[in-house]
Design a protein around this nucleic acid. Structure first.
Lengths: 182, 182
DNA sequence: TTAAACATGTAAGCTGTTACATGATTTA
DNA sequence: TAAATCATGTAACAGCTTACATGTTTAA
């Protein structure tokens, strides 16, 4: 699949970055649909460089501290654009440990079941609020050809996804609390 | 995390199964939130047996063909129940290659963007319909303490998730088609 | 002066996928 | 009799996480 490769190339299309900066992006903004640790990013950048898809210049902060600022090459850019154009099969539904748990919830008493659901609900609600806060930065839909448009639609998707999970949990709580048939 | 372990133990709580049957479950019904190939399941069963969490009896089909029917032990059962009771932090949002692509969609012309979105929409719509068909097996909410209740709520969750993805894609198509500001 | 942030890398280990490997039984 | 399904396993590899390893610079 090599998605990490394209995630990095896509970021470098915007502007040159260091590995450290890429890692930060992957753990903040992008984290709603992609992420990677620096231990994965540095070796990947090294390989992309060997493949001629990126170059780097060394910058010095202070007296000694070096950082490599990576720039995408023409080949890297055309590789990325080619990938971006491809139709793809929808991916397998992601694994979900909590749903696995709920699948087996017949083994739990109602009290525990509702407790687990409410605990998850609370956590998802917190995440939703933090996403909504970020969303306030977009008082209107950004221009369709700007980078911010991409940011906007995936953020909107993250909010919708979060709201949907909460709606599902609420349904589950509702079913669990119903008295009918007992 | 060892989730595969508990996924298997959970299934064996319902009734004894062979590795082959577990693999089938993981690739059909459960596949909406969990899956595993036989190449992962057989070694895992072997290990669970070594840990004393499952036992097996050998059955013969025809003249030669052997299969191992696994039964959960008391220790396995209590291990599973303990796991099932644990509160857990919500997991990281799963990686999503299509969202990654859309994040970078500023690099695509409108026609391609809409084409990609509509292609995904079509595929998600198909999956939704197949889920809805399965859902017809549940004319009403199954009893809260039956295994079928777990099946029901995760299936309901899968449908909601699928509808939500389609709603997001529709929003994206809408934004992409708008003429304002051009 | 100390904690946080900047900055880059490697190694070990776990999870999961694809391919390799073999063979029996049932159904069309 | 051929294809699909039943049935079990191992091996190689890819992807990712956690820990190891080191040191600088900035801000409180």
């Amino acid at each position: 699949m090599k998605s990490l490769k394209y995630a990095i190339l896509g970021l470098l299309c915007r502007h040159p970055m260091t590995g450290y900066e890429i890692a930060k992006e992957f753990n903040f903004e992008l984290a709603e649909f992609w992420y990677a640790n620096h231990s994965q990013i540095y070796p990947e950048l090294k390989q992309l460089n060997e493949e001629g898809l990126v170059n780097y210049d060394i910058e010095i902060s202070g007296e000694i501290l070096e950082s490599k600022r990576y720039t995408i090459t023409e080949k890297g850019h055309s590789d990325f654009i080619k990938w971006l154009h491809k139709d793809e099969k929808i991916q397998k539904t992601p694994k979900d440990v909590f749903r696995l748990r709920m699948y087996f919830s017949g083994n739990l008493d109602m009290e525990t079941r509702i407790h687990l659901l409410e605990n998850q609900r609370m956590q998802h609600y917190k995440r939703l609020n933090s996403l909504k806060k970020t969303f306030e930065q977009y008082p209107e839909v950004p221009p369709r050809n700007s980078d911010r448009f991409g940011d906007f639609i995936v953020l909107r998707g993250a909010i919708m996804r979060q709201e949907n999970i909460i709606a599902w949990i609420d349904e589950c709580i509702g079913y669990s609390k119903e008295d009918a048939g007992e």
